[in-house]
Design a binder for these strands. Structure first.
Lengths: 158, 158
DNA sequence: GCGAATCTGTACTTTTCTGTCAAGATTACG
DNA sequence: CGTAATCTTGACAGAAAAGTACAGATTCGC
């Protein structure tokens, strides 16, 4: 159970822009430098975030990326969904609402139920966290660790 | 945020053996067939589980794999740890116990804190779930979905 | 002892993911 | 109008993960 690299870096890039305050914007080179990744890489991540509806882009000489909505209205669960996909699709039991007879004994369902319970637990955190919360962090969140989360070839985080 | 393939299939293989009841055992071919994966693949997963201390193996003509401990003493969090590694290491803030001055403003820490909150939420579920719970499922776990969790080339789960 | 059935361990191939690249489109400014 | 700065898009290459294959070691039963 791991975070994907786009989830880690995409969310960081989005936060960089959010830190510019309402209406603030950053260009690809600026985000690239701030996060220590290549411009091409930053461009790819920002594009995904734009397609997902979290960023607006402006082309041309005075272009750049801006938050599409206020930071407090951007829910982290939605962002991670776009960057990496969900753990498990929440449209469960849409038609198994009746007596769950046939599937209660299979090994499959045992595992599925577990995955689902995890999804619920994770969503409980992510659905209640906005970009704004991350910006003014330190409230319900604890102190950090210095351990690396993702692949070894990525830059070491300060 | 995804489960790795070993996590999904390794846990299933372990459950297959657990379903044999106390003292029950299965061979590699049996597990392989029950889960619809190749014998080589099953062997690899079972070896990991044995190394992790969840299975005992017996070689020779009457060999096979048996649970190393009763199902109720095997915690799923430990199993997934061996199969796929943790989301985030829990030895956080071992030395940042004091005033967290320098790191409270960085973007890194915002993200880290979020990852950590997720780890805590996930552990809350996994540390309280044993193999026994999965065998007699349907208690705190809900009905299943029919969506696939992992890579497309894996066998479609019934 | 010999052979069959079983697990053990390492190396290899395929697939998937991740990050890179190059060419194009758009806008602002002089 | 032209130049420079910016975003856009699809294709590509390297790296990591996943699954496969093979040769070996152990045990049981005859």
């Amino acid at each position: 159970m791991k975070f994907s690299a786009p989830e880690e870096y995409g969310l960081r890039c989005l936060l960089q822009i959010a830190r510019q305050g309402p209406g603030g914007s950053l260009t690809i080179p600026q985000v690239s430098q701030a996060e220590g990744i290549s411009q091409h890489h930053a461009a790819k991540l920002l594009r995904i975030l734009r397609t997902g509806g979290f960023l607006k882009s402006a082309r041309g000489q005075a272009g750049g990326y801006t938050l599409a909505r206020p930071a407090r209205e951007i829910v982290v669960a939605d962002v991670l969904d776009v960057l990496g996909g969900r753990l498990f699709n929440p449209d469960f039991c849409a038609r198994h609402a009746g007596p769950d007879a046939a599937c209660a004994q299979t090994t499959d369902c045992s595992i599925r139920s577990l995955w689902l319970a995890l999804q619920t637990a994770v969503d409980g955190v992510l659905n209640r966290t906005t970009l704004q919360d991350l910006l003014q962090n330190g409230r319900e969140m604890q102190s950090p660790s210095q351990q690396l989360v993702q692949p070894a070839h990525l830059r070491p985080v300060s």
